[in-house]
């Protein structure tokens, strides 16, 4: 599963990097960044939580059906 951040929504609250530090980090400008696009299974629950808790609803799974 792949995850992405919508940069039109992200305000740089940095909660994703605290909730799932193995997958998200904060870039030099303070905005969220996906460090590991292909999310390993053991990180999936934490990413789900980050998606749910993102204050600005900026994070989403990427549809695999391309």
């Amino acid at each position: 599963m792949r995850v992405q951040i919508n940069f039109d929504q992200c305000e740089g609250h940095g909660r994703c990097a605290i909730t799932a530090p193995a997958v998200f980090r904060v870039d030099a400008e303070g905005y969220g960044q996906v460090a590991v696009e292909d999310v390993p299974d053991e990180e999936r629950a934490r990413v789900e939580r980050a998606i749910r808790l993102c204050p600005k609803q900026a994070i989403a799974w990427v549809s695999e059906t391309v």
Partner: peptide, 16 residues
Amino acid sequence: HVKMRRLVNKGFTPRA
């Protein structure tokens, strides 16, 4: 709201 908030948001990021 989205546009107005973006005007000031930079002053409130973790970096700031």
